[in-house]
Design a protein around this nucleic acid. Structure first.
Lengths: 203, 203
DNA sequence: GTCTATAGCCAGATAGAC
DNA sequence: GTCTATCTGGCTATAGAC
């Protein structure tokens, strides 16, 4: 890794601050309701300065999504290092992690419907590469878990993968939490359990 | 039911056409991306005319949501009439119905996040009444299904209810369908099965 | 690279004739 | 109630001084 000049380090810190702010706002309001003015205000710089770092609002959001995928890969590596854990247990840990992130207000969400952002993401090579990597890693665990009988082998692997991905934007945890009867930890447990149970063999 | 004058009938038909168009657009693009101009274009009248029928964009969406809840109640009645069916089977039929509606592009979705629409819906008495009715009817079946051992009695009834509601905006069916490997009917079966299996007792 | 100020656009809502 | 035309505000993006 090349040594960074002071100037470059400052730039890097500033960019990280921007992406972190975008991450929070995406988690809170979603892409359409997030305004670039808010991002600038949260970072504490002028809007015009933002546009020196990122060419568009879509690019801002894409950077936040790339950061999420990088964090996801890091967590996958962490799970892969737990040699005592079965593939199914690792997948369960992924679900738990996603739900925890979501309840903490740190899970950025992208509109799965039509949007200017969809197009930009599908053209963003770095994003697609990371998404592929994550899918491959999780896909391998799914196959292993099915062979071990911990996940129903008659279910298409796609279905299992998408079911896990979908926990990142599941509305159930937030509604359960809003009900006030459960702690965050309890919500995570309940949702994780119903998710995984839905994927296990019939008996 | 009072006899309607011709004038009132025309009004009624026009309003139904508007709400149907809003329903489609909400299902297709969601509230934020739906524009009032599009609604007007789809109905075939001028935007200003729309505002003679509904005072705001939020009111338009609320009307579509009320219509959805009315259709839901009608389907609940239909299921209640199936005397051979168990409560769990009725709940499963509800899930199947919601998924079918969603895949057909007829399921309007409301942003569960912050939005001007949330506030308006929570102040809309007719909407809240209907929502309560639906929840009560489904809640009764859930309790019965738990007593019968078809749904895990250790799960909070809230969790079960929200899990069923969430199928209406589940992103998994659309993604599975986009993959092209499954027919709509297969998608409905796969998602319904994993949903219900997640709620059944451990063994 | 940072700021202030503003251009340009688009969508929700309204005026007023018919 | 329907239309055409317009207002209004907010948002993305940029110009231009420093």
């Amino acid at each position: 890794m090349a040594r960074l000049s002071f100037r470059e380090q400052v730039l890097r810190v500033r960019q990280d601050a921007i992406v972190a702010a975008v991450n929070r706002l995406l988690a809170d309001k979603g892409f359409d309701l997030m305004t670039v003015d808010e991002v600038a205000a949260e970072v504490g710089i002028a809007k015009a300065s933002l546009y020196k770092h990122f060419p568009s609002k879509e690019a801002l959001a894409a950077a936040a999504m790339v950061r999420l995928l990088e964090r996801t890969l890091a967590f996958i590596d962490q799970q892969a290092a737990r040699q005592e854990a079965t593939p199914a247990q690792r997948l369960e840990a992924m679900v738990r992690w996603a739900l925890t992130l979501q309840l903490a207000g740190e899970m950025p969400t992208v509109p799965s419907q039509n949007s200017s952002l969809r197009a930009e993401l599908m053209a963003h090579q770095g994003y697609l590469d990371l998404l592929m990597q994550v899918s491959d890693r999780l896909g391998a665990w799914i196959t292993e878990a099915q062979a071990a009988g911990d996940i129903d082998a008659t279910l298409p692997a796609e279905l299992v993968l998408y079911n896990i991905y979908a926990r990142a934007c599941d509305p159930v945890p937030a509604v359960l939490k809003a009900g006030g009867r459960f702690s965050d930890a309890e919500v995570v447990e309940l949702v994780t359990e119903t998710c995984m149970r839905g994927l296990r063999p019939r008996r």
